[in-house]
Amino acid sequence: MPQLLHLDSSADPARSISRQVTARFSDSWHAIGTDHSVIHRDLHLNPLPHLPTSALHWAPHLRTSEESVDAAAEALQTELIEELISADVVLIGAPMYNWSIPSTLKAWIDYVHVPGVTVPFDGDTAPLVGKPAVVVTSRGNDYTPGTDAASTDHATAQLRQVLEFALGMDVRFVPVDLTLAPRVPALASRIPQARANLEAAYSAADELALLLGGSSAGQE
């Protein structure tokens, strides 16, 4: 049964652009067949606690003798990692907040990026290599390559570093720029482009859901 892990992190459940696009992907995934399941984790409505100790950054066998870990925190980390590993495809809604990612999404990353468990350190521990991930990045301004603001998009760079380079996942980004055009007077002239960007993101979500959902089904 192909399984999608769907993560949302926007603090605006009602009007969020990233949530609209991830919902479009999830709906397209469901539409492939009744066997295509979805685990939805809303990191804003049900935020994860921050790591209670830096010891959780390491696999149990890599912790020092002085480091102790609360059993409940370790159980939560195990749950999150197993949930990630078991998914055939991972979908992440990552709006840009202050040129970076929401703290709720960062908390999830801190739980699942673990040398010796999900990241190679003292052995071949790389269970996520090649796993498809789709990241919907919604940005208020225009951050496309070549624009003046492009170098300040730290959200995409951070997620690429963690998901692609560290965890080894096969990451596809679906950017949606100019989401603040209807709200910010200085961007009002670009409202048509904002609408076109959203439509392009919807189309990309549909295409990727069909592509990756079909590939996952073929691997069963």
Rank of each mutant, 00 (worst) to 15 (best):
T118N: 09
A157R: 15
I81E: 03
A31D: 13
W99M: 15
L62W: 12
L167N: 09
A71Y: 04
A133P: 00
I191S: 11
G123K: 13
V89Q: 01
H113Y: 05
Y111C: 09
L7W: 00
W58Y: 12
V21Y: 00
I39G: 02
A75W: 03
I191H: 03
N98H: 08
L51H: 09
E67P: 09
E164N: 13
A73P: 10
E67I: 02
D35F: 02
E207D: 11
D110I: 03
R41N: 04
P145Y: 11
L163P: 05
A209D: 05
A204E: 14
A55R: 04
H6W: 13
V129C: 12
A107D: 14
R15S: 11
A217P: 01
H113D: 09
V112D: 05
L208Q: 12
H40Q: 13
A150G: 06
T156W: 00
A186Q: 13
A75K: 05
E220L: 13
T144L: 07
R41C: 01
L76D: 13
D177K: 04
G123C: 10
P60F: 02
T152D: 10
H40I: 07
K106Y: 08
W29Y: 08
L45R: 14
V171H: 07
D27C: 06
T34A: 14
L210S: 04
L198C: 02
T118L: 04
G130T: 12
R139E: 12
F25K: 04
R15E: 15
V184G: 01
A72L: 05
I17L: 04
G123F: 01
Q161C: 04
L198S: 04
A200C: 06
T22W: 02
H50E: 12
N197S: 03
L5E: 01
T78D: 14
G123T: 08
E164A: 14
A205Q: 06
L212N: 06
V21H: 07
F173P: 00
G213A: 06
I85C: 07
P60I: 04
I191E: 03
E74R: 05
A157W: 09
M1S: 07
A71R: 14
S86A: 15
P47I: 01
H44E: 09
G130V: 11
P185T: 04
G168C: 06
V38W: 14
M1Q: 02
I32R: 12
P127Y: 12
D35Q: 15
N46V: 01
G93L: 12
S16V: 05
I32W: 01
G168A: 05
G168L: 13
H30I: 00
E164T: 11
S215A: 15
L62M: 12
R195D: 15
A217S: 14
A72W: 01
A11H: 08
V162N: 14
R183C: 07
Q158F: 15
D177T: 01
L4S: 01
T147C: 06
E164I: 00
A205G: 03
G218S: 09
L43P: 03
R24P: 00
V171Y: 02
L45W: 05
D142N: 14
P132V: 07
E199C: 04
V90F: 05
S10G: 01
T179E: 11
D12N: 15
A205L: 09
A204C: 10
I81L: 10
P185R: 00
V114E: 03
R24I: 02
